[in-house]
Deep mutational scan, measured.
Amino acid sequence: SLSVDNKKFWATVESSEHSFEVPIYAETLDEALELAEWQYVPAGFEVTRVRPCVAP
């Protein structure tokens, strides 16, 4: 099958004044980091952490 098993990760994104967490959907932690950097670094943010979303 061609289905992709995307998992939810939380990326911590920082600017000079703010820090916030955004959801990233990817297959692996490395891919989540790449996606977060691709989305947020060009906008002037720094991705400081990516972690798996742990269900309660």
Rank of each mutant, 00 (worst) to 15 (best):
S3P: 09
V50I: 13
E34V: 12
I24G: 00
V4L: 10
T28W: 03
E21I: 09
A32K: 01
G44Q: 02
A55H: 11
Y25C: 06
P56S: 11
P42W: 12
K7W: 12
G44R: 00
L33E: 05
T48N: 04
C53M: 06
F9W: 14
D30A: 13
A32C: 06
A11Q: 00
V22F: 05
S1A: 11
G44F: 03
L2M: 10
F45D: 01
F9P: 00
K8N: 04
Y25T: 04
V54I: 13
E46D: 06
E46V: 15
E14I: 13
E21F: 06
V13P: 01
W10E: 00
F45I: 01
E17I: 08
K8P: 04
V4S: 10
L35E: 04
L33K: 13
E37L: 14
A55E: 11
Q39K: 12
D5H: 15
L29T: 04
C53V: 07
D30M: 12
S1C: 15
P52Y: 13
P42Q: 07
F45M: 05
P23D: 04
E46I: 15
N6L: 15
H18P: 01
A11F: 06
K8F: 13
R49D: 08
E37V: 13
V22E: 00
S1E: 09
V41K: 13
S19W: 11
G44S: 01
P56H: 11
D30C: 13
W38H: 13
E27W: 10
D5I: 14
R51I: 08
A36R: 02
P56T: 10
V22K: 01
P56L: 11
T12I: 05
V22R: 02
F20A: 03
F9M: 00
A26F: 02
F9S: 00
Y40Q: 03
L35S: 05
I24P: 01
A43Y: 14
E14F: 09
K8V: 13
Y40C: 05
V4R: 13
L35I: 12
W10Y: 07
A43D: 08
V47E: 01
P42C: 08
T28K: 03
V13T: 01
Y40S: 04
A43S: 08
A11S: 01
S19H: 07
V47W: 04
T48P: 03
Y40K: 03
E34D: 07
P52I: 12
A26Q: 01
T12F: 07
L33V: 09
D30Y: 10
N6H: 12
S16H: 09
V54S: 12
P52F: 12
A43N: 08
L33N: 04
Y40N: 04
A32V: 02
V50Y: 03
D30P: 05
H18S: 09
P52C: 05
S3D: 08
A43G: 06
P23F: 12
E31Q: 13
E14H: 10
E46C: 10
R49I: 07
T48S: 05
V4F: 11
L35N: 04
L29V: 06
E21D: 09
N6V: 15
E46R: 15
I24E: 00
F20C: 06
T12W: 08
H18N: 07
A36P: 02
W10Q: 02
A36T: 03
L2I: 12
P52N: 05
A55C: 13
P52M: 12
L2K: 11
A55G: 11
R51K: 05
A55R: 12
Q39G: 05
P52H: 07
D30R: 14
L33P: 00
L35Y: 08
D5Y: 13
A26V: 02
G44K: 00
V4A: 11
D30E: 14
S1V: 09
L35K: 13
E17C: 09
A55N: 10
V13G: 00
Y25H: 04
E17G: 13
K8W: 15
W38N: 13
L35A: 06
K7F: 11
F20S: 02
N6K: 15
P56Q: 12
E34C: 12
L33G: 03
Y40P: 03
E27P: 13
L2C: 15
E21S: 06
E14Q: 14
K7P: 09
V13I: 14
F9R: 00
A36E: 01
S3M: 11
E21L: 07
V41N: 13
P52D: 05
F9L: 02
L2G: 12
S16R: 12
L35V: 07
S16F: 10
F20Q: 03
A26W: 02
S15D: 09
K7A: 09
D5L: 14
D5N: 15
P23N: 04
E21M: 08
E37M: 14
V13N: 01
N6C: 15
A11W: 03
V47S: 01
P52W: 12
L33D: 01
E46N: 10
R51E: 06
S3N: 10
V54M: 12
E27I: 08
T12E: 02
L33F: 13
E27Y: 13
A11L: 06
T28Q: 03
S16L: 08
R51T: 07
R49N: 14
V54F: 12
S1R: 08
A55P: 09
V22L: 04
V47G: 00
K7M: 08
E34W: 14
P42K: 08
N6M: 15
P52V: 11
H18D: 07
S1M: 10
S15P: 01
Y40E: 03
F20P: 00
Q39F: 15
D5Q: 15
A36F: 04
A43F: 14
H18M: 13
G44V: 00
E27H: 14
Y25P: 02
E37R: 15
S19E: 05
A26C: 05
V13H: 01
A26I: 02
R49L: 12
E27M: 14
L29I: 10
A11C: 08
A32W: 03
E31P: 00
E46Q: 14
W10N: 01
A55S: 11
A32F: 02
A43R: 13
A26P: 01
A55M: 12
